[in-house]
């Protein structure tokens, strides 16, 4: 029987009752956005707030998907029902995408719920819909919800703002520790994983990371109550996975016992409000660009009678002179 004719309410009822196809359908609605997505949001956002949302980020090829597959198995073995939102980029030219994270997760038990998500042009890299998708999965009873995303540009910051716990995956031999310092990964990581720890250079990567963490201590950026652990992992062999799970649980306990969880949630809410408002504003701007008023402003800028900056200010502050 097709689910396409069901109302949002019926789909949500089914999803909350554990119907996976209904969950899959709801995720599509959330990804599409608009009024229906908002309806889903209204029905789901108060559910599943206990679920632990874990963000996994790191450079392409760092082994995130392989590690996530192992982590999912570890959570399943511990009688928890994990779900994964795996984000891959859409082509900026065609809008299409090849979502290949499931290839690395082929051995994951079908009881875990894996959803492949394309960024669909959201500039941050993390699809705009991801927080909403995580909410649907949490409402359907999945816990933890793991968000996996490619670490390029500002994505690290994005994923941190969407998760309770952020795991940064680095690999030996890529100069990652230094790169991490540049890219601001040190600030966002709650846990570091040195993946492919069987490769030469793994202990160097660990030492570099430790040195960088020492430096954050010196400059006072460190959260004094906790230093991010560094876990050595060989995902292919499954070594170190239990230690990652332990570190994730430890971080969750830390957030709960120090009242930091609510602060993280506050940050998540703030971030999501900001990105939704930013999108609405962007669309509003795009609409404005095609009005005759703006066309006149463009001519003024071309003729040199108005600067681009002052024209831009008039776009978002129509009353400003």
């Amino acid at each position: 029987m097709s689910l396409r004719h069901l109302s949002i309410d019926e789909l949500v009822d089914r999803a909350l009752g554990g119907d996976r196809r209904a969950v899959g359908r709801l995720l599509s609605i959330v990804e599409r956005g608009g009024a229906e997505a908002e309806q889903v949001e209204t029905r789901t956002h108060a559910h599943g707030t206990d679920a632990h949302v874990i963000g996994i980020t790191g450079a392409p090829g760092a082994g995130k998907s392989t590690m996530v597959a192992r982590l999912v198995a570890a959570f399943t073995a511990a009688s928890r029902g994990p779900a994964v939102v795996a984000v891959d980029p859409s082509s900026p030219l065609t809008g299409g995408a090849i979502l290949g994270d499931r290839v690395r997760m082929a051995e994951v038990d079908t009881s875990a719920f894996i959803r492949s998500v394309a960024t669909r042009g959201h500039s941050g890299g993390l699809a705009l819909s991801v927080p909403g998708s995580a909410r649907v999965l949490a409402a359907a009873g999945f816990d933890p919800v793991i968000i996996e995303t490619v670490g390029v540009g500002q994505v690290e910051v994005d994923v941190t703002a969407a998760a309770d716990t952020t795991v940064v995956v680095v690999t030996p031999g890529m100069g990652d520790a230094v790169q991490a310092n540049k890219a601001g990964l040190l600030e966002v990581a709650d846990i570091f994983v040195v993946n492919k720890a069987d490769l030469p250079g793994a202990s160097d990567a660990r030492r570099d990371l430790e040195l960088m963490l020492e430096l954050s201590h010196v400059t006072g950026q460190e959260d004094a109550s906790r230093r991010p652990p560094i876990v050595m992992v060989d995902s292919l062999a499954g070594e170190g996975i239990d230690a990652v799970r332990g570190a994730i649980d430890e971080h969750h306990d830390h957030l709960v016992t120090t009242d930091r969880l609510v602060e993280r949630r506050r940050r998540r809410a703030r971030y999501e409000m900001r990105s939704r408002a930013a999108l609405a504003f962007e669309r509003h701007l795009d609409d404005q660009l095609h009005t005759s008023e703006v066309a006149a402003m463009v001519e003024d800028v071309l003729a040199g009678s108005e600067t681009p900056s002052s024209a831009a200010r008039r776009l978002w502050q129509p009353d400003a002179s």
């Binding site: 196809r21 969950v23 065609t94 299409g96 995408a97 082929a106 492949s116």
Partner: peptide, 27 residues
């Protein structure tokens, strides 16, 4: 992909069960 579709690639050695699960989860 180049025609603008989102391709969920599962790879080799799939079973009918794993494909059904993927179709459900990926809608």
């Amino acid at each position: 992909r180049d025609a603008g579709m989102e391709v969920i690639y599962l790879g080799l050695r799939q079973t009918t069960d794993s494909i059904v699960a993927a179709v459900e989860q990926e809608d």
